[in-house]
């Protein structure tokens, strides 16, 4: 639910000395991305993606660094980050499994898939395994209805899933 945000007024932020926003990302954005848009704010989403691709999630410190880099208040960047489902403000597993639960997938048996995954991983939807390997997500349509039921494992799309072949896919991951 994109519109539920956390109360961050009294929150302690974990900090580390090494910045999350690396010099390479900064250089790339200054050279390649800033000229694309009339405002620096427009780079918010690409920048958050770049940071998240590197660290797998978005710590609050990274949001602050991004805000400073884009010359915006940190609250503005946090506002954007909390709206989108793809941005994780908490650590997640190395593999995120996005199982589609919309109409085509429900008709073609998404329930069995989630049951199987939950049973195998020992977690429910929107939870992460204790060893930090897997995060299971129930999401709305991921745009592969022709191959329903389908799921994304990180960036890779798997179609026509069954309880059997989903097990194989999990076994194939380190």
């Amino acid at each position: 639910m994109a519109w539920i945000t956390k109360n961050s007024a009294t929150m302690q932020i974990d900090r580390r000395d090494e910045p999350y926003l690396t010099a390479e990302i900064k250089a790339d954005f200054e050279q390649r991305m800033f000229p694309r848009y009339p405002t620096k704010q427009a780079c918010t989403i690409p920048l958050l993606h770049a940071i998240q691709d590197l660290h797998n999630w978005l710590p609050y410190q990274a949001i602050e660094e991004a805000a400073e880099f884009l010359e915006l208040p940190a609250s503005t960047v946090l506002d954007t980050a909390t709206f989108y489902e793809e941005f994780f403000l908490e650590p997640r597993g190395r593999y995120t499994i996005w199982v589609c639960q919309s109409v085509s997938c429900e008709i073609m048996g998404h329930n069995k898939l989630v049951e199987k995954l939950s049973e195998k991983l020992g977690i429910g939807p929107h939870e992460t395994t204790d060893d930090g390997r897997f995060t299971l997500m129930n999401v709305e349509c991921i745009g592969a209805c022709g191959g329903a039921p389908c799921a994304l494992v990180n960036h890779k799309l798997h179609e026509n899933l069954t309880a059997d072949n989903v097990e194989q896919i999990l076994d194939g991951l380190e």
């Binding site: 994109a2 694309r36 405002t39 704010q41 427009a42 780079c43 918010t44 989403i45 690409p46 958050l48 993606h49 884009l70 506002d79 954007t80 909390t82 709206f83 989108y84 489902e85 793809e86 941005f87 999401v139 709305e140």
Partner: peptide, 27 residues
């Protein structure tokens, strides 16, 4: 021509929400 990646929000398919998202705001 530039490619802009969304971040998982259905509402950004609505034309003005898409523009807000393009500007780096919530959709």
């Amino acid at each position: 021509l530039y490619l802009q990646r969304g971040a998982g929000a259905y509402i950004c398919g609505e034309e003005t929400a898409l523009l807000e998202s393009l500007e780096g705001k919530r959709g």
